[in-house]
Amino acid sequence: MTMRLAILCPGQGGQHPGMFDLLREDAQAAGFLSRCDLDRLLKAPLAQVLADPAQLFANICAQPLIVAAQLATWQALRAELETIAGAPAVVAGYSVGELSAYAIAGVFDASATVTLAARRAALMSEAAAAAPAQGLMSFGGMAVDALQARLQSQGAHAAIVTGADTLIAGGLNAALQAAATALAGQGVRSAALPIGLASHTPLMHEAVAPFLAELDAMAVHAPAMPLLAGVSGQGIADGGQARQLLARQLTETIQWAACMDACVERGVTVALELGPGSALSRMLRERHPHIQCRSLADFRSLTGLLSWLRRQAD
């Protein structure tokens, strides 16, 4: 079998106190994390943040932590992955994970991307301060078009489309709760997510211009491998387009279902989620069961992960 590998980079929600444990055992990953200087970016010792759930799940810490973990994982695995499967057939990121995907595809410098994640988090938190008590909530059990219409009627927004009848909604907490209550009688499931801002909705509008300024100050290159845009599920052609699409995803709906379908269209046979967590590999297995999907979170060592990948290539 000729392996066609997708690299998937998740967003917030799966971070945990041991998210760097495997990475510290690898010289490439550990060196990258040292260069990122996370204590400075977090404005607190990393060990303290990891041990405190309030800090670990706070947006201001979560975004740089997640991007740092994903890019450290890429540093640790890249050479072996290319030996096993060649260059990835596609790279895609979900929410803040899209920053990691850009760096993996060579659009941004990896260390600079971790700093960018910290700036993005700060700008989004500042935007959220103008309309406090906002967040994200999952909904499932009704066709997406109908769900979006019901959410809009309650003043909420579709933030991420994850399936034919599932999505993540964002908005003020009161609007989300009103939508959940109204839809419960129609068999719709809902659950609040541990994210205190309405990512990928118009409530993030004030973050767009300063984030674009951050992007304009960075060296940006055309993708060196196929890279998907979260807002469309389509490929990104050049650096200028990459900037605009990454800024758009602050306020526009992420089309993750379209990204998963794009993996099939590009002939992906195996997908690896860089973690933390395993939400993306679970979603891809459910939508496209013929793709072999695993996450770093499924393994107790990087060696175990690489052994699994070699078996897929046999």
Rank of each mutant, 00 (worst) to 15 (best):
L151R: 05
L302G: 02
Q15G: 10
I7T: 06
L246V: 14
L23A: 02
S190D: 13
V91E: 15
R243M: 03
D21S: 10
L8V: 12
F299S: 02
A247M: 12
R310L: 12
A122Q: 05
R189Y: 10
T2M: 08
M218V: 02
V270H: 13
Q12F: 01
P289H: 08
H200D: 15
E80S: 11
R4S: 15
L203T: 15
A159R: 10
A72W: 01
K43W: 03
A129C: 09
R24K: 05
A110T: 12
R35H: 05
P45H: 03
D314L: 06
A149Y: 02
L296H: 07
S125Y: 00
L245Q: 03
G11D: 14
F299Y: 10
A85L: 02
L246D: 06
P202F: 08
P276E: 06
Q177E: 10
E82C: 09
G163H: 11
R300S: 11
A192G: 10
R266D: 06
L176D: 01
A105P: 05
G97F: 06
V161N: 07
G155V: 14
A262W: 04
A217Q: 11
F57I: 12
S301E: 00
S100C: 08
A224P: 11
A79G: 07
G170Q: 07
P53F: 04
G277R: 02
L99N: 09
L272W: 07
D109R: 00
L215P: 07
R282D: 15
R285Y: 11
R282G: 09
A143W: 09
G135L: 03
E80N: 08
L172H: 15
L151Q: 01
M124P: 04
G93V: 14
G18V: 00
G93T: 14
A237Q: 09
A313H: 13
M124L: 11
V188W: 03
G187W: 09
G187N: 06
E214R: 09
T115V: 07
L280Y: 06
T269A: 09
G135I: 01
M218K: 04
A127Q: 03
A313G: 13
M142K: 11
A128K: 01
S153I: 01
A79I: 07
A184E: 03
S153R: 00
L272C: 09
A51G: 10
R78F: 03
R150Y: 07
E206P: 11
A68D: 04
R248S: 05
A72H: 10
D216I: 01
P10D: 03
G14I: 01
A180G: 07
H288Y: 09
R189G: 10
A247Y: 09
E25S: 14
L22H: 08
P132S: 03
Q28P: 05
M137K: 05
S232G: 14
A76S: 05
S190Q: 11
L227G: 08
I254A: 09
M142Q: 15
M3C: 10
L302T: 10
F57N: 14
E206L: 15
R287I: 00
P10Y: 00
D109A: 06
Q241K: 15
Q28L: 01
D39H: 07
D261T: 15
A207D: 00
P210L: 04
D52Y: 02
I291C: 04
V188Y: 00
L65P: 06
E265K: 15
P45G: 08
